[in-house]
Design a protein around this nucleic acid. Structure first.
Lengths: 337, 337
DNA sequence: CTGAAAGCGCTTACAG
DNA sequence: CTGAAAGCGCTTACAG
C-alpha cells in the first residue's frame, strides 16, 4: 500500500527507532518483548505491508516448510484427487506444496528432483517414473530430505511406501465376480506395464485364478492402456482378434473401465465390469460403475501425514481408510433398478 | 554420496584451495575463469554432490524462479488439465510450480497468497475465490508480483485475464442446437453461481435467446451444480418440479453434462445435450458427449506464457487456440452410428 | 585470471 | 526489556 521498495524488518525498525532484533522478536511474539513494543511493531508492520522474506529466514534457520510432490501427470484424475488430499494436510500446517509432473520421463524427473532439493524442501512425496532406481533418488537421501513413495515402489530405497493393498483390491473385485456373478473366465485389463501396483495386482490375481482352478487370459492383461480412449480401442481390438473369450473384466482403474464400457456398448456386448478407484464420475457413467473404492483423497492425506511425521510433526497416526466394493450396475447387479 | 554436513561452495573452495568467488563464478560458467579451473571446480562439485542453495542465491540476487498457481480445487479435472498445460510451460524454463487449492474459501486464499509472497514467487496465476475484490489481491501488487487472472475476472485488478470467450462458446453450442436440431426451448444448466465466466455465458445466452425470439428458462439456470452427482440430482428435481419444459440443454461443463445425461437416462427421456470443455472422458460417455472444446491444457499454456511474458521472458506470443464444437451422440447427431 | 570484502534479510546468542 | 554483532550461503563489484 505504501512503498515501492521492499519493506524489511529494518524499515520497521528505522521507522520506530528500535533495532532489527526487537522487530524480529516482536513479530515472532517472543514473550521477552514488552507488550507495548510488540503492539507497536505489529501495527507498523501492518501499516507498511511488511511480508517476511522466507528465503532469508530459511537461510538462517534451515527451517523447511515446503513440501514437494512429484507425480507422472496431475491431469490424471486419480493423481489430482490424491494431490487434493495431500494439499489439505499440508495446507493445515501453513506449508506450501511444490508440484511437478514428470510425464513418465526420467530426465524431467531428475531435473525436478534437483530443483526441489535446491529449493530446500522439507520432504518429498513421489510417484516415481517407471524403472526408477534407488540411485536416481539418492540426491534426496544425500540432502537428508525425507521421502514417501506414493503407490510405486522403488527397490532398495529406504522410504515408506504409501499405497493401497493390491491383494485386498483384487480380492474384492474377484470375489464379487466369482461368487455373486459366477464368472469363470475373468481377465484383468489395463494399466501401465511395469508399474509396481499393477504388477502386484496381477500377481495376486494370477494366484486367485490358479487357486480357483480357472483359466487365465494373459493376452488381455498385456496391452497397456491408461486413458479411456486407449482402453476402448485396445479392448475392441482384443475382441476382434481373439473373440469374446472372457466373461468378466477387472479394470485397472475407473478411467480404463469407462473405455471398456464404451467398447462393450459399441459392440453390443454385456459382461460384468468392475473398476478400481471410485472416482467422482463412476456413479454417473451409463451403466454406473461397480468399483473398488480406493479413496485417493484419503490416500493423499495418509501420504501427507506419513511425510510430516518423518519431518518431525506429531499427530495421531491416521488409520489407512478401508477399501470397499461399491456395487452399481456395470457388474450386472443393479442393471435394471 | 559423501558427507552428512551440507556441502556448500565453501566446502568446494576449501577442498580445492581456491576462493568462494572462484567456485561461484566457475559453476556459473563465467568465461573469466580459466577453463582448467572451471573443470576442476565442476568435478569437485559433482564428487561432493553439491547442490546450490536457492534461498541464498535468491536472497542475494532477487531472482525469482518460482511460479504460484492458486485454484479453487485441483481435483476438478478441468483445473487439473489447465494446471498440466501450465506446468509444461513453466517446467521448460527450469521453473517450479507452487500449487494451492483454496476450496472456495477466502480465508484460505488470503493465507495462500501470503505464503506465495513470502516465498518470493516471481508471478502468480490465480482463479480467485468467488467474490474476491481487488483489495484482497493488493498484496501481490504491493510486492510487485505480476499476476494473471485465470478464467475468473476481478473487478479493478490490473492484471490480464486469460479465459475463453464466453460468447464464442455459447454461440457454438446455441447455433448447433438451434439450427441443426431445431431446438426452441433451450436452457443453460449448471456451474457456480456468480463466477464470472458463467455470468458472461448466461448473459450472452440470454441475448441470443432474446434475439431469436425464444422463451427463456431462468429456473433451469439458477440452481448451482458443479459436480456430476449434484448436476444429476438437481436436474432430476427440476424435471420433477417443473416437468420437461425444455427441449435442449447447454451444460456448463462436461462434468455437469455427465450428470445430466445420467439423469435423462434414469428418467428415460432424450433431449439434445451439449457440454463445454471436451475433457478426456467426453468421447467415451454413453451417449458420447457433443461438446465445445475449450482446450484447458492449451489455456494453461497460454496463461503460463502470458505470465512469463509479464515476468520478462520473451517468446513469440502464443495464439489462443481456437474453440471448436465436437459433435458426438448426445445432441442426437450420431445417436445410432 | 583469482581473492577479499560487502551485503541480501533474517534469527539468535550475548551483553547490558 | 532492548541493542550490537555474527552468520546462514550465495553473488558481485572491486582490487590486484
Amino acid at each position: 500500500m505504501v512503498d515501492r521498495r521492499a519493506v524489511t524488518m529494518q524499515t520497521i525498525a528505522d521507522s520506530l527507532g528500535v533495532s532489527r532484533s526487537t522487530v524480529s522478536l516482536a513479530l515472532r511474539e517472543a514473550p521477552v518483548i514488552a507488550e507495548a513494543t510488540r503492539q507497536a511493531v505489529r501495527e507498523e508492520a501492518d501499516r507498511l505491508g511488511f511480508v517476511p522474506n522466507r528465503s532469508a529466514a530459511r537461510l538462517r534457520t534451515h527451517q523447511r516448510r515446503l513440501v514437494g510432490l512429484v507425480v507422472p501427470d496431475f491431469a490424471n484424475p486419480l493423481v489430482a484427487a490424491t494431490a487434493a488430499g495431500l494439499q489439505r494436510v499440508v495446507g493445515e500446517q501453513e506449508r506450501v506444496l511444490l508440484v511437478s509432473s514428470t510425464f513418465e520421463d526420467s530426465v524431467i524427473q531428475r531435473r525436478v528432483l534437483r530443483s526441489l532439493i535446491e529449493e530446500q524442501v522439507g520432504g518429498v512425496i513421489i510417484t516415481s517414473v517407471i524403472g526408477t532406481t534407488a540411485a536416481e533418488l539418492a540426491g534426496l537421501a544425500n540432502a537428508q530430505i525425507p521421502a514417501v513413495l506414493l503407490n510405486r515402489m522403488v527397490e532398495d530405497f529406504p522410504a515408506p511406501v504409501v499405497a493401497r493393498s493390491a491383494a485386498d483390491i483384487v480380492d474384492l473385485a474377484f470375489d464379487h465376480l466369482y461368487v455373486a456373478h459366477n464368472a469363470r473366465r475373468i481377465a484383468y485389463f489395463g494399466g501401465f506395464i511395469d508399474a509396481s501396483p499393477r504388477r502386484d495386482r496381477l500377481e495376486h490375481f494370477a494366484s486367485r485364478i490358479a487357486a480357483a482352478g480357472l483359466p487365465s487370459f494373459p493376452a488381455w492383461a498385456s496391452p497397456p492402456s491408461t486413458s479411456t480412449g486407449e482402453a476402448r480401442d485396445t479392448f475392441m481390438t482384443l475382441v476382434a482378434e481373439r473373440g469374446m473369450e472372457i466373461d468378466a473384466v477387472i479394470c485397472h482403474s475407473d478411467t480404463v473401465a469407462m473405455g471398456v464400457l464404451r467398447a462393450l456398448a459399441n459392440m453390443g456386448i454385456q459382461i460384468p465390469v468392475v473398476g478400481i478407484d471410485d472416482l467422482d464420475f463412476a456413479a454417473d457413467m451409463t451403466p454406473s460403475l461397480t468399483t473398488v473404492r480406493t479413496d485417493a483423497r484419503g490416500l493423499g492425506e495418509l501420504a501427507g501425514r506419513t511425510l510430516l511425521a518423518l519431518m518431525g510433526s506429531t499427530f495421531e497416526p491416521a488409520a489407512e481408510p478401508a477399501l470397499e466394493l461399491i456395487v452399481r450396475e456395470s457388474c450386472g447387479c443393479a442393471q435394471d433398478s
